[in-house]
Write a protein that binds this DNA or RNA. Sequence first.
DNA 1: CGCCAACTGTACTGACTGGTACAGTTAGTG
DNA 2: CACTAACTGTACCAGTCAGTACAGTTGGCG
Lengths: 203, 203
Amino acid sequence: MGERTAPSGTRADGKRRAIVRAALAEFLDAGFDVSVDRIAAAAGVSKVTVYNHFDSKENLFRAVVSGQLQGALAEVERQVEARLGDSDDVRAELVRACRSWVAALTTPDMLALRTLVAVESRRFPELGEAWLEHGPNVVFAKALTRLNDRGVLHVADVDLAVLQLAGLVLSPHLVHGRTPGKRLTDRLIVTGVDMFLGHYVRS
Amino acid sequence: MGERTAPSGTRADGKRRAIVRAALAEFLDAGFDVSVDRIAAAAGVSKVTVYNHFDSKENLFRAVVSGQLQGALAEVERQVEARLGDSDDVRAELVRACRSWVAALTTPDMLALRTLVAVESRRFPELGEAWLEHGPNVVFAKALTRLNDRGVLHVADVDLAVLQLAGLVLSPHLVHGRTPGKRLTDRLIVTGVDMFLGHYVRS
DNA sequence: CGCCAACTGTACTGACTGGTACAGTTAGTG
DNA sequence: CACTAACTGTACCAGTCAGTACAGTTGGCG
């Protein structure tokens, strides 16, 4: 009693996926306050079915957003890893990694997701924590540590350096409403990496 | 008809101030969705009185938030101006200005206000615009321009440089939920200014 | 193929909110 | 001091939404 089990079976799986897809879109578009009726309609599903799969709107939100969060962050990590270590030119290497980093975090969906998590962080503190702990910065901290170990960088405090690099190349996309254009984005990366290396590379 | 005139007189002024004060606190605490009843209660005022002064909840929000926005930004500007130009040591001068800048924008109220404006930017686009146009960055752009004109800096693109300096010293406070502690805040400023000057001061 | 879990649609409850009506009270100003 | 704008408190309307009840339908799995 109380804890009903979620429906299972091929049909149920399909419905569940449809609900999650629709809910994500609706949440990103209108925030947590979208009505469950609208989500159900967008999923082509009865409202009761939504409540058969997720026993409250809050749990639906948790499942949908945290799922997307995990996936997106894994994608960021994959991209940044792929761009590191394939060259001896540190500058070019770092610029490439930053391009992937910024690109992965500035898709419309990721920006909307970040805003959503920030907005609802009081109602769902766990989501904010998840963003910070398995967050994008952690990914890049590993990258910096690698460059440090290889001796090409001399970074005393990796966490501080990550904050600085993020501040230089990424933060302008996050703090403003409208995102900088492609030209400015690239200038921020190239000039930012220059500034960063000028400070942390002692020849 | 339609456009009722706001109440006037000494009593009305007091009530109005109480409403604005309470509304600001409640909006910052719980967002636009706080009930008008709660605002009225917090102001020690009847709900009808609220509607006598502001003919809709949306207009109340506009008046309260934009008023606070103007005041806070003016305060930032005043502080930064006061910290500039009183020394020949550019580094110390810039560090002082950044300290004022960061301090003025990271009070709990300012952080909450920023979040609130960001959240409701779709319902109240004007507020988001106001933040950007008369925003804190504009203040600092003037400061950089002054240092540039005095010949101590060589900044080709002031807007880019402001984004970078803001990214280095300010953005860590804005993008995370929890704000960095006092020690980290100061290290961000000092090291950030170092990095910034290393790039923009050609001796 | 037949059964039962899963689904649909509608209608409902209960709670809440923005905004208004109204009748009576308070207090600043001419 | 008296007049009236401004204020109070309560009661009310209309709309919305999370979540449930119920009776009937569908479709996948044993």
